[in-house]
Amino acid sequence: MNTTLIWAAAAALTLAACGRSEPAADAGVAEPSSRTLAASLDDNDDLDSLEAVVEAAGLQTVLEGVGPYTIFAPTDAAFTAVGGAPGEDEKAQGATLVRAHIVPGVVTRADISAALDRAADGKVTLRTMDDGVLTFTREGQTIRATAADGAAAALTGTETAASNGVIQPIDGVLVKGG
């Protein structure tokens, strides 16, 4: 396992255990709002498909809870590119898809970038809520996430800090066939 992952996870959990829910003032992230991840998804018009999947999978209450979580959130265009998001009748598939895009803790782009700067092999891994692994690399100024099955996406748009985590928009779906 990548030692960067272990240290990043330990740092995130330590900060969460200390009750620190706000990123450092110099982290380059907007101050978290009083709105939850669920409400922040609702506020973002480019994440309507993901919001619908979260609701259909019955995971909205999780994203209204304590957290913290980081959601690598496929945009509506990302879902369109793979033929659409799972529908309401595909609750299990939707829940699997959502869990494959969430990691515990608050992970900002600055955190990922700093970890990549320190990584000897140029890779950083994070474990998802479905026990999968996302591997992050840098291509120029672009940070890419790749799932174990090869599905990949670039971090895009603006991250959103919420009261219980952060939303990182991505331009792909990190589950093949998802």
Rank of each mutant, 00 (worst) to 15 (best):
M1K: 05
N2A: 11
T3G: 08
L5C: 03
L5I: 01
A8Q: 14
A8Y: 01
A11M: 05
L13Q: 08
A16R: 08
C18R: 11
S21Y: 00
A24F: 15
A25K: 15
A25F: 02
G28E: 15
G28S: 13
G28Q: 14
A30G: 11
S33G: 15
S33D: 13
S34W: 03
R35N: 06
D42T: 05
D42E: 14
D42F: 01
D43C: 05
D43I: 02
D43K: 06
D43W: 04
N44E: 10
S49R: 02
E51C: 04
V54W: 11
V54L: 08
E55V: 15
L59P: 13
T61V: 01
L63C: 06
L63H: 12
G65S: 14
G65H: 02
P68W: 05
Y69V: 03
A73H: 03
P74E: 12
D76L: 01
F79L: 10
T80L: 04
E88Y: 00
E88S: 11
D89F: 15
G94S: 04
A95P: 00
T96N: 12
V98R: 04
H101P: 01
H101W: 15
V103H: 05
V103R: 00
P104Y: 00
G105F: 08
G105K: 02
G105N: 09
I112K: 02
A115G: 07
D117S: 15
A119E: 14
A120D: 12
D121W: 07
G122R: 13
K123W: 01
T125R: 10
R127H: 04
T128V: 09
G132Q: 09
V133A: 11
L134V: 04
T135W: 15
F136H: 02
I143C: 05
A145N: 06
A145L: 10
T146K: 15
A147L: 09
G150L: 08
G150Y: 04
A152H: 14
A154W: 02
L155N: 13
L155C: 07
G157N: 09
G157R: 09
E159T: 12
A161F: 01
A161W: 03
A162C: 08
N164E: 12
G165D: 09
G165V: 00
V166A: 13
I167S: 06
Q168M: 12
P169K: 00
D171N: 13
V173L: 07
K176P: 01
